[in-house]
């Protein structure tokens, strides 16, 4: 495991994070959740930017307490709200990183920035949102880190550039021994990129599943009230009331396809799962 969080706790006045998760070598793990669910707090906790109230964290095989500043050369980070000081230029940032990271290749970094259309001598504060997002991601990937921790890296990017940046991440993973932990609001990014997903709500991990399983086995059933009454609900995990009856989330799509051919069964995707978990009511165990 390149990253392991065990019962990590952080309490604020009106919010408590209780989080356990793992990121395996060679995998891209997504963290999804609504605004304020605890994604950024989780990232800050694992990066040591906030003090935790309990739990254990291991990064690249080291306990967080033993993880030194030098060890951070092996981590590349995108934070949702911060990057280099806005008065610096891309060239300035390259000069800073050259003096911070032993594996940073200044020429390759500047070539890449240039290739992605970033002006090398313009102040970062004058960049568009999309340009800033590209710059942050290229900085994180510029020093051969083993683990990338990316908090909302594709925010503000148009579809074309987003696709290019996702391809960059895939290329990054072609080298052995690496892993990425990424959060995003854009589920299509995560569906096409992540090997597994954690879903966080109100500071707690509600759900962890392989992306392939979500796409192949999960489904949303649309049932009338009468159909709901007759339904075998053993495999229904969430229920959401709708004008026509209920929407139900299940992990056993095939069971309902085989046994209830007349039901409307929609193939599951990350948006559906997230929406059902946020807006729906947990019905696990109901018969």
């Amino acid at each position: 495991m390149l990253l392991k969080l065990e019962n990590v706790e952080k309490t604020y006045r009106d919010f408590t994070l209780r989080c356990s998760m793992e990121v395996a070598e060679g995998s891209i793990t997504g963290l999804i959740g609504a605004n304020g669910a605890g994604k950024s707090t989780t990232f800050k906790a694992l990066l040591g930017l906030i003090r935790t109230d309990g739990g254990n964290m291991e990064i690249l095989g080291k306990r967080q307490g033993d993880f030194t500043a030098k060890d951070r050369e092996d981590i590349g980070v995108v934070l949702a709200e911060s990057t280099f000081c806005g008065t610096l230029t891309v060239k300035d940032a390259a000069a800073v990183m050259e003096n911070m990271y032993r594996k940073f290749n200044r020429k390759a970094f500047l070539d890449k920035c240039d290739g992605f259309g970033l002006p090398l001598e313009k102040q970062i504060k004058d960049f568009s949102t999309g340009m800033k997002a590209k710059f942050k991601l290229l900085c994180a990937m510029g020093h051969e880190a083993r683990l990338l921790v990316l908090d909302e890296p594709t925010v503000g990017l148009d579809n074309v550039v987003r696709s290019e940046m996702l391809d960059e991440m895939r290329r990054y993973m072609e080298t052995d021994g690496r892993a990425i932990l990424i959060s995003s609001h854009i589920s299509s990014d995560l569906e096409g990129l992540c090997d597994d997903l954690y879903f966080i709500k109100n500071g707690e991990i509600l759900f962890h599943e392989d992306t392939d399983v979500i796409l192949s086995d999960y489904a949303v059933l649309k049932v009338s009230r009468q159909q709901y009454g007759d339904l075998d609900k053993r495999y229904v995990s969430y229920r959401k009331e709708e004008p026509f009856g209920y929407k139900l989330l299940t992990k056993e799509k095939q069971f309902y396809l085989d046994n209830y051919p007349s039901l409307a069964v929609e193939k599951g995707n990350i948006d559906d799962v997230m929406l059902m978990m946020v807006k729906g009511e947990k019905v696990e165990g109901l018969k």
Partner: peptide
């Protein structure tokens, strides 16, 4: 400047204590 642009947090993810 580090405070204003929230870059202090980002700097603390780099190899500096």
């Amino acid at each position: 400047m580090d405070e204003h642009d929230k870059s202090m947090g980002f700097l603390m993810t780099m190899p500096v204590s």
